[in-house]
Write a protein that binds this DNA or RNA. Structure first.
Lengths: 158, 158
DNA sequence: TACTATTGAGTTGTGCGCAACTGAATTGTG
DNA sequence: CACAATTCAGTTGCGCACAACTCAATAGTA
């Protein structure tokens, strides 16, 4: 409120606002997590597991590396996650014959069957966001641009 | 592209888009995490620890419950986090005399000293977002509204 | 005043996310 | 061909997030 040090005040507002952007992002992600947890509990899936299944439903067979590129996750996260999906009977893992280093992940019959039961999950969640198609698209574009800039590293400067 | 089943196609687009909103959110949060990890590593803080310190720097003394309300975290997350901050010497914890159930958390001299070294963290991170004040404010508003709607539960329907 | 219900912190167990590492398979290069 | 460098999965260790629980302190009530 005091006008004695306007520059400092401006900087502090910027900092506070910045803090709140990341914090708001953090909170929105966790709120989404709670909604998905509720929507997915009947299927016995967590949200990251659901993401992996979506990618596999779409592509049928993927290497761990390719799946990691799609989900932006490394093997340290994916290996145990896929192990859990496998022991749940939703997914099969086998070494590639062409390149013994890579492991190919594919959907089992039970995994395909689960897809049917998962059809209304996105609808339920979408309804909860209160966003229409345009609102989602707008927000997604904003977030993707933000992620790209954050990933780009400090060497951009333009 | 085919116009044979426009309704199904519309629905699928909606679902896909919806999926991408949460996924985009997830990715943006993790990208922010990487930036903060880098910016905070000299201070020896994680991002959630940094959030807790920011709240404590601002309020000086807070109960675990109040801190949890500010950060949207429960004791299951906060107790071990505060324990780590305490063993790092940044924070002091003591039972309230008025209500022996609650624990009051306050900043030590070392914690206050750390604040000085943390001043440029938000500036660094803000620069990396590539957003100006208006862009941040806009995004934050969108995210806060989204979080509120997601928190509200399925009983809204309007 | 007793007795029940609630509140506040903490603990345990599970899963995600990431850094750092291991080990085997493959690729590249002399 | 031999040997170093790279690639791919997996493992370990740490911290966060959350559910479900315990336990003590307090508040509410018959």
């Amino acid at each position: 409120m005091t006008a004695t040090q306007p520059t400092t005040t401006d900087a502090e507002n910027l900092l506070r606002l910045e803090h709140q952007v990341c914090f708001a992002l953090h909170n929105a992600t966790r709120a989404f997590g709670a909604v998905y947890r509720d929507a997915l509990k009947d299927l016995g899936l967590t949200y990251p597991q659901y993401l992996a299944m979506m990618a596999l439903w779409e592509h049928d067979e993927l290497s761990v590396k390719r799946l990691g590129e799609l989900l932006r996750l490394d093997s340290g996260t994916l290996s145990p996650l896929l192990k859990r999906l496998e022991s749940a009977g939703l997914v099969k893992r086998e070494r590639s014959a062409l390149d013994e280093r890579s492991v190919l992940v594919s959907v089992t019959a039970a995994g395909t069957a689960l897809r049917e039961r998962a059809t209304d999950v996105p609808l339920t969640v979408a309804a909860r966001t209160g966003l229409d198609r345009e609102g989602m698209s707008e927000l997604r574009t904003l977030l993707d641009r933000l992620t790209d800039r954050l990933d780009a590293g400090p060497a951009q400067e333009c």
